[in-house]
Amino acid sequence: MTATAVRARGATGSGRLPGAWRLGMHRGALELRQFFRRRDQAVFSLALPVVLLFLFASIFRDSVAGTGVTASQLYVPAMMAAGIMTTGFQSLGISIAVERDEQVLRRLRGTPMPPAAYFLGKVWLVLVTAILETAVMLAVGVTLYGVELPAGAGKWFAFGWIFVLGLTACALLGIAISSVPRSGASATSVVVLPFLVLQFISGVYISVGTIPGWLLGIGALFPLKWMCQGLRGVFLPESARMLEPAGSWEYGRIALVLAAWCAGGLLLCLLTFRWKNRRDG
């Protein structure tokens, strides 16, 4: 039995385990403690998008003609979206693959803890770290690059559902791709490569107006491109819409694509997730 389950059992004062939700809360607290105890990993994970933003925004600072925004301001929402996907897709995909390789998942599966509690723990970890990272990125964008916070409730509502749907879709894809690496040692290469490619063809590092149409079409099949576009709509003035291929923010299409990826990601998880390595049978 895991330490999480033992503590939860003691908290109930009976021999019966609490429900998956309560165990998931305990599991989430454990995941967060483990994450922040590895200080080098925590600092690197939270600081990498900020460092990349600083580098790109320092190199590309010119105003974009006819939009009222600078190239630096365009990078802020794009890097924010990339940070959300880093937390939900990259970090989660690698960590689960490593835990599977180290037999952590197999041991957890043999305990009375409901499987849902494990995933709820990951949800809390991803949610808290994504909120922290987004807050840091937003603070840097407002302070250093003149990005203005939305004035109306409608924009904040749009930010909320883009954040929730985008993070959910990315986290489900992270869980699904965690079953692809054959070992924990290969997980970083397997997960980082497609994410790196997506960042280049989704408008994170390069303006969508300069990406070849066929590459942008491939990027449009995945959540990151739509998260970048939606967050640009939230934090940039309406005049910046002209930079989008459709000439508008397309919030309806963004919602449909992200919701579709949430459903598709869940299906992929159900079909592909494994508690043990292939070599274990």
Rank of each mutant, 00 (worst) to 15 (best):
M85G: 13
S186G: 03
I131G: 00
S72W: 01
V98T: 10
A169G: 04
R106Y: 09
A71H: 11
T70S: 14
Y75W: 07
M113K: 03
S58L: 12
M85E: 04
S58F: 05
A71E: 14
V140H: 13
F119K: 09
P114M: 07
V164K: 08
L165M: 11
P114H: 14
F163I: 06
C170D: 14
V190A: 03
V123E: 04
F200C: 07
Q199K: 12
Q90Y: 14
Q90R: 15
L144G: 03
G174K: 13
T134R: 13
A81R: 08
G66N: 01
R106V: 11
I84A: 10
S58T: 11
A153D: 04
V191F: 06
I131Y: 05
R100M: 01
I59H: 08
A135C: 07
L193K: 03
G141N: 04
S179K: 00
L105K: 10
Q103S: 08
F163G: 03
L108Q: 12
A153G: 10
L120D: 01
R109L: 03
L92R: 13
R106W: 01
V190I: 07
L125W: 14
G83S: 14
Y145K: 11
A171E: 00
M137I: 02
M113H: 00
T70E: 05
S63I: 02
I84C: 08
W156S: 05
E102Y: 03
F159A: 13
L138T: 10
F56G: 02
G121Y: 02
P114A: 09
V190E: 00
Q199V: 13
E99K: 12
T134E: 02
S72Q: 11
I177A: 05
A117M: 00
M137L: 15
V69C: 02
G121H: 08
T134V: 15
S189T: 09
L144A: 14
F60K: 10
F60A: 06
A97C: 00
L120H: 03
L105P: 08
I177V: 14
S58V: 09
I177H: 00
A158G: 04
A81I: 07
Q73I: 02
I175A: 00
S58W: 05
M113N: 01
V180L: 15
S183R: 10
T111Y: 11
Q103E: 13
G174Y: 10
L149R: 05
F60P: 07
V126M: 05
P181V: 07
I177Y: 05
A171N: 08
A117I: 03
G121V: 11
I96L: 13
P115F: 11
I96D: 03
S72C: 08
R100T: 00
A97F: 06
I84Y: 01
G66D: 13
L173I: 02
G88A: 06
E99T: 01
V104R: 15
V136C: 07
S186L: 14
S63D: 05
T134G: 01
V147T: 07
V64E: 09
L196F: 15
F157Q: 02
L105N: 09
L138I: 09
V192Y: 15
T143L: 15
T70G: 15
Q103V: 10
P194Y: 02
G146C: 04
A151W: 04
T134M: 09
Q73S: 10
S183V: 08
I96E: 00
